[in-house]
């Protein structure tokens, strides 16, 4: 009797895994046909407004101080900024910390040369439908999303750099 009862919860465990919110992912529409959501957020030096970045290639990165892979992506973001900034790339790293202090503490340790914006309520992340931390979006000069990247994996940075390079040379 015990052994059969033991199986019951396991079955329920397994069944429960597949019940959840609808997944945000749905294929079909090519990413490059989507207009990037617009935003206007406080930055380190005044408002950061997406509309004013038209004409530039924009790399939007969503991050938070408590997110380890986000931290690890910063040196790479800096490298991209330094390498492609003169070729039309603007890196905008949108911070999603609830408390500004946590973000400021992190920024003190790592003073990024690229643009930082703050969105403690996460509305921009909602608009971009961020599925994981960090997430990044490469946007072309007309405001269309060229590609999206979820998470930060050193092994995939070459791929992303090639996309940036491609977008900047158009």
């Amino acid at each position: 009797m015990h052994s059969r009862l033991f199986l019951l919860p396991i079955t329920v465990l397994l069944a429960s895994l597949f019940i959840g919110p609808p997944n945000a992912s749905a294929g079909g529409v090519g990413a490059d046909t989507l207009a990037a959501p617009r935003f206007a957020l406080p930055g380190l030096h005044g408002l950061v407004v997406s509309d004013s970045l038209r004409g530039k290639v924009v790399y939007v990165d969503f991050w938070a101080s408590w997110c380890e892979p986000c931290r690890r992506s910063f040196p790479w973001l800096k490298a991209m900024h330094e390498k492609y900034g003169s070729k039309g790339l603007v890196v905008v790293a949108i911070n999603l910390d609830k408390e500004r202090r946590a973000a400021d503490d992190f920024l003190k340790k790592f003073t990024p040369p690229f643009t930082i914006a703050f969105d403690p309520e996460g509305k921009s992340a909602e608009a971009f439908d961020v599925s994981t931390m960090p997430s990044s979006f490469l946007i072309n000069p007309t405001g269309m999303i060229l590609s999206t990247h979820a998470g930060f994996d050193l092994k995939r940075t070459g791929e992303i750099e090639a996309e940036i390079q491609g977008a900047c040379s158009k």
């Binding site: 959501p37 599925s131 999206t148």
Partner: peptide
């Protein structure tokens, strides 16, 4: 304002 359910964002 939203690209919900249209963007394919892979899990990290």
């Amino acid at each position: 304002s939203s690209v919900r359910s249209r963007l394919r964002v892979a899990a990290c």
